[in-house]
Design a protein around this nucleic acid. Structure first.
Length: 126
DNA sequence: ATCCTGACCCAAG
DNA sequence: GCTTGGGCCAGGA
């Protein structure tokens, strides 16, 4: 079956329409969500955004991770869609090493998502 | 206001 | 598999 075109579900659209609060509460929601991911599990940028209540804000999740003080978040547990590491060069190596140390296994360049994807509470898709 | 950039995502070809 | 083009959003210049 062909994948549906990129379109918001009614639920996503409803959330998106309540106009974005400012960045502070949004970032706090992201931080809280990211901290819920346990050792040995991962979540994608888009999943973190949606689970935090901000579908379509995956880029801002990355932005937050970029500027977050070191040690304040388990940043290595947030990855690109399909279990791909999006960092470059050494940074990518470090993330992979940290994850493998937590027991996350890779198949080639990607993480075995079937095994390691964290399911957020109340997550109804996928 | 405009332009550019980014640890993004996805459908097509 | 890979590349491309379009969509998405905020923050900085």
């Amino acid at each position: 079956m062909r994948k549906p075109p990129r379109k918001l579900s009614a639920r996503e659209a409803a959330r998106f329409l309540q106009r974005a609060p400012k960045s502070a509460p949004r970032d706090e929601a992201f931080r809280k969500t990211i901290r819920q991911i346990p050792r040995g599990k991962v979540a994608t940028y888009a999943q973190v955004a949606a689970a935090a209540g901000y579908p379509l804000y995956h880029r801002q999740v990355a932005q937050l991770l970029r500027t977050a003080p070191t040690g304040s978040l388990p940043w290595q547990r947030v990855v690109g869609a399909g279990g791909e590491i999006k960092l470059k060069c050494e940074a990518a190596l470090e993330q992979r090493m940290r994850l493998e140390m937590e027991g996350v296994r890779f198949r080639g360049k990607r993480i075995d998502m079937a095994e390691h994807q964290h399911r957020f509470q109340g997550w109804e898709f996928e």
